[in-house]
Write a protein that binds this DNA or RNA. Sequence first.
DNA 1: GATGAATGAGCTTTCATTCAT
DNA 2: GATGAATGAAAGCTCATTCAT
Lengths: 196, 196, 196, 196
Amino acid sequence: MRISDKHNKIIQAAIKVFAQKGFFSARISDIAKKAKVADGTIYLYFNNKYDILISIFEEEIGKIIVEVKRLIDQEEDPRKMLEIFAMEHMRMIKDRRNLAEVLQMELRQSNKFMKEYRNTKFIEYIDIVSMIIHKGQKMSIFRKDVMPGVAKRAMFGALDETARLWILSPDNQYTIEEAAKQISMIFLGGIEQNNS
Amino acid sequence: MRISDKHNKIIQAAIKVFAQKGFFSARISDIAKKAKVADGTIYLYFNNKYDILISIFEEEIGKIIVEVKRLIDQEEDPRKMLEIFAMEHMRMIKDRRNLAEVLQMELRQSNKFMKEYRNTKFIEYIDIVSMIIHKGQKMSIFRKDVMPGVAKRAMFGALDETARLWILSPDNQYTIEEAAKQISMIFLGGIEQNNS
Amino acid sequence: MRISDKHNKIIQAAIKVFAQKGFFSARISDIAKKAKVADGTIYLYFNNKYDILISIFEEEIGKIIVEVKRLIDQEEDPRKMLEIFAMEHMRMIKDRRNLAEVLQMELRQSNKFMKEYRNTKFIEYIDIVSMIIHKGQKMSIFRKDVMPGVAKRAMFGALDETARLWILSPDNQYTIEEAAKQISMIFLGGIEQNNS
Amino acid sequence: MRISDKHNKIIQAAIKVFAQKGFFSARISDIAKKAKVADGTIYLYFNNKYDILISIFEEEIGKIIVEVKRLIDQEEDPRKMLEIFAMEHMRMIKDRRNLAEVLQMELRQSNKFMKEYRNTKFIEYIDIVSMIIHKGQKMSIFRKDVMPGVAKRAMFGALDETARLWILSPDNQYTIEEAAKQISMIFLGGIEQNNS
DNA sequence: GATGAATGAGCTTTCATTCAT
DNA sequence: GATGAATGAAAGCTCATTCAT
């Protein structure tokens, strides 16, 4: 048995339930039912309800980081890298909609009830962007007066907010891939060195 | 006594408590204590806990919209208008930090427990951006291939996420005004018509 | 102003509200609204919610007793007297339906939450029946082996339960006057001296 | 453990508490304490407080109906059957005093807060009387002009009210069995065919 | 006397967590 | 390891009663 079959079954069930009801309104018994285990069993794998949420952050974002980094590392051009990041982020949201909802929602909540929890995985994820920008600046492709610390957040925020609203009303006039392209286009236009 | 002193006292207390604990963890008695009224008094002015949250959205965002629109209407140049929007949004967050936290957090939560509630005020607010972009496109200042519906969300998301993280770690290397400038610079660079 | 206009207005409003909702579910504010006075005004005339109920018993039953006694005293024949009692009881219930509902319901409830309250008015009322029977026994019209203490309760119970169900489903196959006749017929048949 | 020990323990505790305090004044915690379970446990077996009351009606009256019918079915003579009904009703009240109090009280209350609840069990119970009378009329033992629908209610009301007052003041001058005899004597005298 | 806004005690119900089996 | 019945703390909300105006 891998890291335990049940551990994963519970995580996957929790993602669905949290996405549907939100963390606070989700009941342990909902998760247990969806995971087809007894309520008590959950406490053999997690300390408490919060612990499930944190585990979702840690483990699932971890997998995404690895995948995104792998794709980006195959590129040399920072412009392409930024495009890939945008596209992959959006695709992930499309493919793993429930997970995306949990991350988006609870990311904002979490710091309220888990003051102590520093979301290092999330930081690691958006730092991919600042590294790309940094690299572009070194290569004199991106403007030097762009602050990578601001730009990474702006980029992530732009993608995430667009995705959030796309999720809420899926009857949209644009596909999520189009949105990704638009956003990377705007950002690249804004940060590229003007060599004229 | 103005049109209900108490109504406003409760709203202001709720903003503080929601900001500190989050909506779900906030107790009515916390709000009552902070507003210096009895628990029951709250129910003379609001139907229930959710109603307080919704009132915060409606009333407080309403005031901000009016103010931002007033400032923007004094300008003619869409570029300046976008700069003003970015700066005012950030200043509002700086000045009304607690309110900003509530809006940011619960904006993401709300659709989970208030499915029926359509946040028209919020839509009205970000539509300010799409109107600016539309205007700039008409005046051939902004690129025609930028989709206003995507750009408004991207712009808002960029500002909001940057602000969110600035709030969380106020020991930042940049001021919030600098962040506002960076973001409007990037966006303007990305959407301006290239007349070369 | 008589025993106070307001006192009576509140009593009449309370009868309606108690009849509709029952004592516990009735709110003071309901009564105040129906009586067109302020909530606080009620406490100028009554000590508390229970006190209103007790006052209904005392005052309203008091009036009925006086009336029933007056009618009965015009008769000499105990058989007729019993018939009058049955008919008047039923007519009262028909005419003062709300009052009847309150008396019936709360009579059974009251001893639970007002242990100390001895419902002397009610006792006085049903003692009318035992006095009639006693009189009939003295006149050798009614059987001597009938216990007046049992018969009075049986008679009252028979009338009251029949009336209660008649109120609940007014689409009955008999009028309340027919029911009164049936019951006095049965009782008279059962207690009359057999002179054969 | 039989088909849920706890379900029955809670019912029995609730009968005692409702009898003592009345439905509205009874607190869930009172019932829980008397049943020696936690407050929350009650909600594993019942949906809410009303549901406990309804269950008492359904289950406990159900048992009584079965027993009374069994005894009556052993008789042929409608006169005897009526006597048995009266006696058994009174004995039940004596033996299960708390249950009797709950049934009597809440029977009158219930229609106020549970409009939707049709007390079919109770109807079934008093219909035993109308069936007896009907049978007696067919056999030309009882008078044809007696309306079974009125007589059943009158009979039940007479028994129930006499029992109610007997419960309230147990220092009575008659036993409950004597009362039963008196009442069946009066009724039989009143409804028997006069063959003289 | 009259008002009705304000009070705060009190109670039903929920649900994360435990633990005997 | 797995179960799920049982626990009991916790909190939203109601409403009888008070009292400043």
